[in-house]
Design a protein around this nucleic acid. Structure first.
Lengths: 219, 219
DNA sequence: CGCTAATCTAGAACAAGTTTCAGACTTGAT
DNA sequence: ATCAAGTCTGAAACTTGTTCTAGATTAGCG
């Protein structure tokens, strides 16, 4: 069997079959391949941190990560794929960070709101990066669905963690879905300068009330 | 003063100052200019109805509407501006349609959910058009803020109409904001094939509960 | 060690959004 | 009717995402 071959055959066009779980999905990569992938994601995040979505130019990413343009496209079939993967990367990081200091709130709603606001503050520190990732996420078409879905699952996991709810009811899951919707959309409006930070905070707190509504006494 | 001049000087780069109300914002256009604008919007919607966002190619729009490419850009400074304007157009239409048959629901929440589902069904009839408009809306950057904001106001108006609430409380307005967030984000997930129609329905109904939560007895 | 299949590279080529420019055309004012 | 100022047109040019190609390189296998 060939060199860094069959392995990254999956890297290129992730076979539909294997687009499910988190990391264990794609087959193991060569060390060098893993390194390339890291360099690419790093370059992506770095460029994004500067000028946001537009600053992440494929040629620049390729150059920064010392990889040929064609190779970049083999790893990430489009700019959107690349940025969504960058978001996955950052999200994992954030989930780890959040886990360390569990939210203090009394109610589940408070804890979720607190967690999301913490995440929001993190994004505020790198607004350009946030811009690139969120724009990519909402602009993604069907061809990126598996990756976007993965981001969504990760977000859900973070919220459920904050709720401290082991076995959420279907109603609670609906509430979580709506919270995610609000979270994404609120970020978009903030990033495009149509809503203030305070406004985002209010929106998050408002939507989090749905948790109380669906948790204790189900009306 | 020159011909179709000073008039469309505003057409080009809508002076920041006049980006507020609905239609009365920009100064009156020449008849021919108004006609050009209509042709452009019509071509845009037509192309979008076919192949969605990607099918709306500026050169094609220009050709279809019998306008030079440069002129198209004078009227709409970017593809995003064009599609957002197309959405404004469609939204107005829809608001008119919705007004004719007010929702029947007992509670405000039911009426809002019913209205949004009606709008949703309308979008389902032209999924490609919906795709183009929604993608443009969420991808828009700061340079399109005024126009996007206009769309947002129009959406708010539709929801408040459905609520039948003349003087909404700040809390209710927050709920409406969250409903809009959910509405947009749910559309995005549906368009990208990550949520079913049924799922969107559930999300809408879920978020609409916030209205009941903020209307009668303020907890 | 040498083979073979696949990867990686460098660079050209293509596609669509956006910009630019010179010249023809309109329109309102004089 | 003429004029000045601004608009519209047609076409080329530029930018950036994406694709394609030929050849150099790499990795596992016999």
């Amino acid at each position: 069997m060939p060199a860094e071959a069959k392995v990254s055959a999956k890297v290129n066009k992730p076979a539909k079959v294997e687009a499910r779980a988190a990391a264990p999905a794609s087959p193991p990569l060569t060390e060098r391949q893993e390194a390339r992938r890291r360099r690419i994601l790093h370059a992506s995040a770095q460029l994004a941190s500067r000028g946001g979505f537009d600053a992440v130019q494929m040629r620049e990413v390729a150059e920064s990560s010392q990889v040929a343009l064609g190779t970049l496209y083999r790893y990430f079939p489009s700019k959107i794929h690349l940025l969504v993967a960058t978001m996955q990367d950052q999200l994992e990081h954030m989930h780890g960070t959040l886990r360390k200091k569990p939210p203090q709130g009394e109610t589940a709603a408070e804890r979720v709101a607190e967690t999301l606001m913490r995440a929001f503050r993190a994004l505020q520190r790198e607004p350009h990066l946030a811009d690139a990732m969120v724009r990519a996420l909402t602009f993604a078409d069907r061809s990126v669905s598996p990756e976007v879905d993965q981001v969504s699952r990760q977000t859900t996991a973070i919220i459920l963690d904050a709720m401290g709810q082991e076995n959420p009811t279907p109603e609670q899951l609906s509430a979580v879905r709506v919270i995610e919707h609000t979270w994404h959309s609120a970020l978009v409006t903030w990033l495009s300068g149509r809503a203030s930070i305070a406004q985002v905070k209010i929106d998050i707190e408002t939507v989090c009330r749905l948790i109380d509504l669906t948790s204790p006494t189900t009306p």
